[in-house]
């Protein structure tokens, strides 16, 4: 019996419908591990400078038609607070989240290649669970399930909101870095394991003395990529009452009588700040990636 021809299944996938191709097929494919930094990197620095220097004030001015304090004067008053207690807390949260997520991720990644079956299965389960759940949902669950205070042997350990958000955000970071670590370990030739094994190293010694030190270089670009993604995601915590830059911007707008012409200057400033922080990271990531690609 002849099988019906189905395009894309047993025929080349061709369509006469208009299909939108991504702007850069090589990197913007959703599966590409560095898609995000490649997207950031695809902007030329000059376009960005022009955008920030020219476009931003023009747009801000265009919104303004009032005789009260101009939007820039208002913004100027708030900038110190936005930066020192706003953006600074985003950076602090991203820093601790990354530290915690990296440590947990390394161990979880190693557990994924464990020779003990239950450990391996549990590690894979944890990794896949937190890799594939929305960060905001994880954030809600953790924030609402951790108590504000915990009494351990008479000591009171308190969990301020920002600590809870660090714990929450470090879970998806842990899971994603776990995959990075597993991938890096498995990308090393098995002959390295064999050589160390022949020298009577134990599995533990091989992993920590021979394999992981060689993985660090390979893991740097994806690690920095995840740091940039994480920093971009930290404003999520403002939804749960942590005083980050976005929360303070909202607070400031309310304090300034919610003048609509202030929306763009304030949120635009937040955007520019995050961009100024993450863009150099993205550039550096691409440079490291290219350098290591040549070396290996």
């Amino acid at each position: 019996m002849a099988i019906k021809a189905i395009p894309g299944v047993n025929l080349p996938n061709r369509s006469d419908l208009p299909v939108m191709h991504s702007f850069c097929e090589k990197y913007s494919a959703p599966g590409h591990p560095l898609a995000f930094v490649h997207f950031l990197d695809s902007f030329s620095p000059w376009v960005l400078v022009c955008g920030i220097v020219v476009l931003y004030p023009v747009l801000v001015q265009a919104q303004t038609g009032s005789v009260k304090d101009g939007p820039f004067q208002v913004l100027w008053r708030w900038i110190p607070l936005l930066i020192t207690s706003g953006f600074a807390s985003n950076v602090v949260i991203s820093f601790w989240t990354m530290a915690l997520g990296t440590i947990a991720g390394v161990f979880l990644g190693i557990a994924q290649i464990s020779h003990i079956r239950p450990v391996r299965i549990l590690a894979k389960l944890l990794t896949q669970t937190f890799r594939n759940s929305p960060w905001l949902v994880v954030l809600f669950i953790v924030m609402l399930s951790i108590p504000d205070q915990l009494r351990v042997f008479g000591h009171v350990i308190s969990f301020p909101d920002w600590v809870k958000s660090v714990l929450a955000l470090s879970l998806p970071i842990m899971a994603n870095l776990s995959e990075v670590v597993r991938g890096a370990i498995q990308s090393l030739p098995t002959s390295q394991w064999e050589a160390a094994e022949a020298l009577a190293f134990t599995r533990h010694q091989i992993l920590w003395r021979v394999i992981l030190p060689q993985c660090i270089k390979r893991m740097m670009p994806p690690w920095m990529n995840w740091y940039a993604i994480l920093t971009m995601a930290t404003p999520l915590v403002s939804l749960l009452g942590v005083r980050d830059m976005i929360a303070i911007a909202r607070f400031a707008l309310t304090a300034e009588n919610s003048r609509p012409e202030l929306l763009f200057p304030f949120y635009g400033f937040c955007l520019v700040t995050f961009f100024a922080y993450c863009y150099p990271i993205a550039r550096l990531t691409i440079r490291l990636e290219k350098r290591f690609a040549v070396m290996t």
């Binding site: 002959s191 390295q192 050589a195 020298l199 009577a200 190293f201 010694q205 003395r209 021979v210 060689q214």
Partner: peptide, 22 residues
Amino acid sequence: QYNLFPHKTAIENVMMAPIIVL
């Protein structure tokens, strides 16, 4: 294929096993 440890110098390659294992 020699299988030396590329992240260690030549003498560290030689010294690793006696120090770590023995």
